[in-house]
Every structure is written in C-alpha cells, then in structure tokens.
Design a protein around this nucleic acid. Sequence first.
DNA 1: ACAAATGATACTAATATGGTATCATTATCG
DNA 2: CGATAATGATACCATATTAGTATCATTTGT
Lengths: 134, 134
Amino acid sequence: MKLISRNTDYAVRAVCYIARQDKSIVSVAELVKALEIPRPFLRKILQVLNKKRILISNKGSGGGFKLARKVDKIFLTELMEAFQGPFKLNECTFKKDLCPNRKFCWLKNKIDIIEDTVLSELSTMTIDSILKEK
Amino acid sequence: MKLISRNTDYAVRAVCYIARQDKSIVSVAELVKALEIPRPFLRKILQVLNKKRILISNKGSGGGFKLARKVDKIFLTELMEAFQGPFKLNECTFKKDLCPNRKFCWLKNKIDIIEDTVLSELSTMTIDSILKEK
DNA sequence: ACAAATGATACTAATATGGTATCATTATCG
DNA sequence: CGATAATGATACCATATTAGTATCATTTGT
Ligand code: FES
Ligand code: FES
C-alpha cells in the first residue's frame, strides 16, 4: 500500500523543477533531461497537470509548461487527487455494492477518522514547503 | 488507494464471526454460509490465519477454526500485515533502488510521520473493540 | 475403513499501474 | 505564409497486484 503513486511522485518532481527555474516556462525536453523520467509518460502527466490547472501549457515553438499559481498555493493533495483519485481509504463492499452497515460500522468509522488525520497532515504540504527543505 | 484489502476485510469478518459464536470451533461451511464469501477464497484466507497463529485449525471430521487468543489480543494491524505485508506508505524510487536523498528528503520524512500516525491509530483496534460496537 | 474436515499448491481472471506510440493541433519565427 | 517546434488527444501495450478457482494430499473422529 503506497500513499504516493509513481505519477504523483513524478508530478511533484516536475512541478518542483519548474518552480526552481528562473525562466518561468520549461519544455518537456528539459524536464526529461533533468529528471530522467520516460518522456511519453512525463508528457501524459504534464497534460493532466495542465487540465487540472496546476500547470499551464504553451504550445508551439518555445512552448512548454509553467506554474499556474504560486508555489505556496499548490498542494500535495491536489497532485495526489489528480493522479490517484479522491481520498477513500475505505469503501467497504461487503455484500457487493455499498454495504448497508456503512453508517454504523465501527471499523469504517475508525478508518474515516484515520482518513481525516492523513488528510489534515497532507493538507499542510505545498510545493513551497517541499522546496524550502531542499 | 485502499487501507484495507479484500482479504483483510474478509479475515476481519471471519474472525469476528467465530468470536461471536458460543461454540468455539467453526467450520468453513458455516462461515461461507454466514458471510457469503467464496469458499475456496475464504479457505485460503483461513489457512493464512492459521499459519500466523491468529486462528487455530482442527482437521478431520468435526474440525474447523477457533481463535488462538482472546479477542482483545487480536489486533487489526496483525490481520493487515498478514495479507497486505508490513506498513510502508512510502518507498521513494527516484533514480531506481533506494534514493540517495532518503535520509534528508522532507517529503519522505513527512510521510513517515503520517505512517506513524496511521499506525498508532490502527494499533488501538482489536477484534474486541470491533465487536463491541456491533 | 471411511467420511469429513483442513493443508498445500498451482493455476486463472480481473484490475490497477506504469509506460509507449501515433497523429492532430497550435504557436512561433524565418 | 509555411516549416518547425512544441503540446493535446487518444489508443494501445506490459507488468504487477489482487481476487478467485481447482485439485489433490493429509489428518481425524466415528
Ligand atoms: S461492514 Fe460494510 S461498512 Fe463496515
Ligand atoms: S526524493 Fe527519494 S526519498 Fe525523497
């Protein structure tokens, strides 16, 4: 069970890299070279980031990607949700589909609490805070 | 991302069911009927629980499974580890194998903290506590 | 001895994750 | 303008993990 999947991980690195550059716009070519991530895979990732408006893409010659916002406004949870879907540590499917016990199930309730804890820990983490420690 | 996999989930139900019975020993047949879990799959799960000494099996006619310990000594984390392996929310694989940054990586450290939190939450949960709420 | 149970083990199916390939679209610049 | 350098969209493939099945061996109570 991993909290951060590969594409989230790559996405974090890519966004951090872009944030560290002086020039605001960075091409895939440069990112591939710097991060050693397979090019087509990275492209797919960047396209998602663009759609989610975390990065903004510029097409055409001299194009590339730039941050859509300041680094302290880009949250790790956004990246995680973009690639790993919304947080649901739980989702009991006892007896197919959504379990009738859900409302009263102690196990589920406990896990919901854990989910909240994790989420609140994660929600303090921005690209800014990650960069500051490097 | 799920915290509890299907077989852990099934295992919890099975152990709870056994715990609730008056007779201590319960056959697979009965469990299948009560829990509606596919028989061969449940058998495999019970075999694991036996190997991990969470349940104890009795072969032969009239055999079945019984708890190896009192319900307040059976921890959810044990079941999770039995089926999902040890906790490792993390495991950065930047630049293959174990990343050189590991020691100092802020992201990793933060996630380690989350892992500890999750673990300490989970480690309060026993079969006993789950039963009490039903 | 035989039937009723679990043990061991190998196999298959479904899903999720990680990664590729291809062509279309857009923007810059000579 | 039109070639070229970039990303957008999309469909596909590979690998790993999870879920589930099937079969035969072993043990035990009557
Ligand atoms: S048994 Fe379904 S939510 Fe707990
Ligand atoms: S970059 Fe490898 S542990 Fe953080």
